[in-house]
């Protein structure tokens, strides 16, 4: 199973599309590793520097409709090869969300008011996240604060995460 712990990258915008996560010009690559330097290269976000800002991060926190647009699975792959296996957002585009779980990664929705609170409490401070899959709890931590947020991982999504993805799951079951 993949790791869902680590430093949090705050992307304070709605409707971040898969063209921004990985531009189409890199879709000619046929290895996931080749996508690594280009993650979030075209993201429209004030003061975000794709060269440095996600370098040591492992979790993304964002707003609504994350991953909209193109169905390209290169978006989750670009995250995966950069050791980001968890995106938390107010909502996701359907295809992106499924692509994440199909790779044994997590795209977790939290209520918009919880997302608001997490942004106002933690963004700007160096924040780490610990995921307790068993208890279904995220623990956000800074040097001087801690907050627990519960989440709901549905049965099917949990099985994909535990199996490592949809190919493994489908091949063992169908």
């Amino acid at each position: 199973m993949k790791s869902f712990n680590g430093k949090v990258l705050f992307l304070d915008r709605s409707d971040i599309n898969t063209d921004e996560i990985i531009p189409a010009k890199y879709l000619t690559e046929i290895s996931k590793e080749a996508l690594k330097p280009h993650l979030l290269e075209d993201l429209s976000l004030e003061e975000f520097d794709p060269q440095t800002d996600h370098a040591d991060k492992n979790v993304i926190l964002s707003r609504s409709n994350f991953g909209c647009g193109s169905s390209r699975e290169h978006a989750p792959w670009a995250l995966e090869v950069n050791d980001i296996n968890l995106v938390i957002a107010a909502s996701f585009a359907r295809i992106f969300r499924q692509n994440m779980y199909n790779n044994g990664m997590m795209a977790m929705e939290l209520p918009p008011e919880t997302i608001d609170r997490l942004f106002s409490s933690f963004s700007g401070a160096e924040t780490t996240l610990e995921t307790n899959l068993h208890e279904q709890v995220f623990i956000f931590r800074t040097a001087d604060r801690e907050e627990c947020v519960s989440f709901d991982l549905s049965g099917f999504d949990r099985e994909l995460v535990e199996a490592g993805g949809w190919v493994e799951y489908a091949d063992s079951k169908y």
Binding site: S71, I95, G165, D171
Partner: peptide, 16 residues
């Protein structure tokens, strides 16, 4: 519905 590459992989293999 449009899908990703993993869904396409399983669709090619299993038709589901």
């Amino acid at each position: 519905p449009g899908v990703g590459t993993t869904d396409t992989e399983v669709a090619i293999l299993k038709g589901i």
